[in-house]
Amino acid sequence: DHDVVPEDKFQETLHLKEKEGCPQAFHALLSWLLTQDSTAILDFWRVLFKDYNLERYGRLQPILDSFPKDVDLSQPRKGRKPPAVPKALVPPPRLPTKRKASEEARAAAPAALTPRGTASPGSQLKAKPPKKPESSAEQQRLPLGNGIQTMSASVQRAVAMSSGDVPGARGAVEGILIQQVFESGGSKKCIQVGGEFYTPSKFEDSGSGKNKARSSSGPKPLVRAKGAQGAAPGGGEARLGQQGSVPAPLALPSDPQLHQKNEDECAVCRDGGELICCDGCPRAFHLACLSPPLREIPSGTWRCSSCLQATVQEVQPRAEEPRPQEPPVETPLPPGLRSAGEEVRGPPGEPLAGMDTTLVYKHLPAPPSAAPLPGLDSSALHPLLCVGPEGQQNLAPGARCGVCGDGTDVLRCTHCAAAFHWRCHFPAGTSRPGTGLRCRSCSGDVTPAPVEGVLAPSPARLAPGPAKDDTASHEPALHRDDLESLLSEHTFDGILQWAIQSMARPAAPFPS
């Protein structure tokens, strides 16, 4: 592969990997390779389809078979030569091979799209000592099968071997295949498990690692696999990028399955594409389908809103127990993405979901129960707010008499603000006073009005108090039968009158 990737590009890729991570280095090298001529790309395919690569990765054979028959990708048995050289000459001794072996032994695996480039050397060096003999053996194999790289107009793939297949390693990572398949204008990513390549439709969760975000852009890794992070704060999961590491605690105790298979379609829109997988259930989501939507993949363990709600429900009964003089119970939860139609709101002032922060849900004790107040519409209280300059209440639009249902020339009671006709409430011909108009209920007259088809109010509507207090003497005590009587009149003013009279009014101040 030294004929494909020059030394300066190799060093530039290593520097970019240390600065921005393996995914960015892979993407940059792939983009550079696509700008080369067809001879360089053909050399790339020839390096990929060597015999030892085909033996190690069985899924490469179907890719090789898909090439046109007129494309010669065979390799000479006596060494490598550029395709432009007409004579089959043995190339001179390859010093770059020693360079590659020494550099890969030092860096474990470079971040390139060629056999030198995919593992994360920093994480491997940190986690190597417990498994040094086995990992050293794996390093000797890295130059042979560490990076199976493929690129063409139909298929483009980048393979990364790992030393996680050490025997006896619980939940060992089998390997990473960062794979971009450009077929019919689409893009897919796969993962390699035990020599087999699994596409998103049959993606397997190998051991402790999972394909957290099938994305090839942005600074985030394709698999949430930063070796420096180790395990999740809650004892979460091992990262795919942690090559040759000792077994780590796999999943939280509440995880239903340690080796679950995540779905390959969004649980909201039932469509495929780039998904984020939940650590607590097999569901996966688009970032845009979450509520609120996320802009980037959160670091650490992530769970959907259903799993978060289940966790909150487990903690909430203990938080609601009476604990005198104790601060509110704080339950730190990872930043969760909410699927459509589901929402768990945190306290005000918290950062938005999706940031690399930890939301704190506070379970406050329930407030003391209070008697429910009568629910009145805002339009129902409008007549009470229509007060004239002299303190006389004006008529609201649409006000109707509670007896006849007519809204023409209605009066407004100064005591309960109900609309009424003087002739309907006082049919006996009582003279109307000039000021202080009161309806039949507030004036103490319980004589029913002779209106055909309208039920008369119940005599129990009024329960006047002592006459010594004029204001308190007109406080009506309405009961269920009074409400039914008012409802039978089918008037809004009657219902409003009952609601206003049912509310307690402050006692009249004593004259000074």
Rank of each mutant, 00 (worst) to 15 (best):
T491M: 00
L359H: 05
D406E: 08
C269G: 05
A472I: 11
D482M: 01
G241I: 09
V315W: 14
Q316M: 08
A248K: 15
P253S: 08
E489I: 02
H421G: 02
L308H: 10
W422G: 09
Q393A: 00
E489A: 01
G444A: 06
M355W: 15
A288P: 14
S254A: 12
G391S: 13
P389L: 14
A417S: 08
Q257R: 13
E390P: 07
N394K: 08
G273N: 12
I495S: 01
W422F: 14
D470T: 14
G391Y: 06
T471Q: 15
V312G: 12
R303S: 10
G398T: 13
P367Y: 15
I276T: 09
P328C: 13
D481N: 03
C307M: 15
E314M: 11
T311C: 13
S502C: 06
R345Q: 07
D255G: 12
S306T: 12
I276L: 04
P324E: 11
P506Y: 00
L290H: 06
P365Y: 15
D409I: 01
E326Y: 11
P256V: 11
C386Q: 14
G444M: 10
C277A: 07
C404A: 02
A499L: 10
N394T: 11
L337T: 10
T408Q: 14
G354W: 15
A371L: 13
P334I: 15
A248V: 08
T430C: 14
R412C: 02
R283V: 08
V410M: 13
P292K: 15
C442P: 01
P292L: 12
Q316G: 12
L275C: 14
P324S: 09
P476T: 08
G436S: 12
P334D: 09
E489D: 09
P334R: 11
G241P: 06
E330F: 14
L384Y: 13
Y361F: 09
G453L: 10
G398R: 05
P292S: 13
R480P: 05
G453F: 15
L483K: 03
I495L: 05
A419E: 15
A499G: 02
H415P: 02
G280H: 15
P383C: 15
H363T: 05
P292H: 04
D279G: 09
G405D: 02
H382T: 09
A251D: 11
L364P: 06
L462A: 14
P433C: 15
A310C: 09
H259Q: 04
G405F: 06
A310E: 09
C289P: 13
G336N: 11
V329K: 11
G241K: 13
C416Q: 04
E274R: 13
C281E: 08
P450S: 07
R318E: 08
T435P: 10
C439W: 01
R303N: 10
G388R: 09
R295E: 11
V403A: 02
E320M: 13
T430Q: 02
R412S: 09
A248R: 12
P433D: 05
L384A: 08
R323Y: 10
S339E: 14
H363G: 08
G436I: 09
G402N: 09
P457S: 11
S306F: 07
R438L: 07
E263I: 06
I297V: 06
T408K: 14
Q260K: 12
P506F: 03
P368C: 15
C413L: 02
V446R: 09
H259M: 15
R505T: 06
A499Y: 04
P389Q: 08
P327C: 11
V246I: 06
T357Q: 08
T435V: 10
C307G: 14
S502A: 11
H415Y: 13
T430V: 15
G280A: 07
A380H: 08
H425G: 08
S306C: 10
F492A: 04
P332A: 11
F492I: 03
P282A: 05
L486N: 00
S378D: 06
E296G: 09
H474I: 13
D356Q: 01
A366G: 10
T447D: 06
C386F: 15
S473T: 02
R270M: 13
E350Q: 06
D445T: 06
L373H: 13
T435D: 12
D271N: 04
A310K: 05
D377R: 04
L395P: 09
P476A: 06
A508R: 02
R323P: 08
V315G: 10
T331S: 06
G429I: 07
G273F: 04
A251K: 09
P247H: 10
P335V: 12
R461S: 03
P253H: 06
V312F: 14
T301M: 11
R400W: 14
L352P: 04
C401R: 02
A340W: 00
H363N: 11
P351E: 14
Q243L: 07
P389D: 15
S502P: 04
T435M: 12
E452G: 11
G300F: 10
F492R: 00
A267Q: 04
M503E: 05
P253T: 11
Q243S: 09
P324V: 09
L381D: 10
L308R: 12
P293S: 08
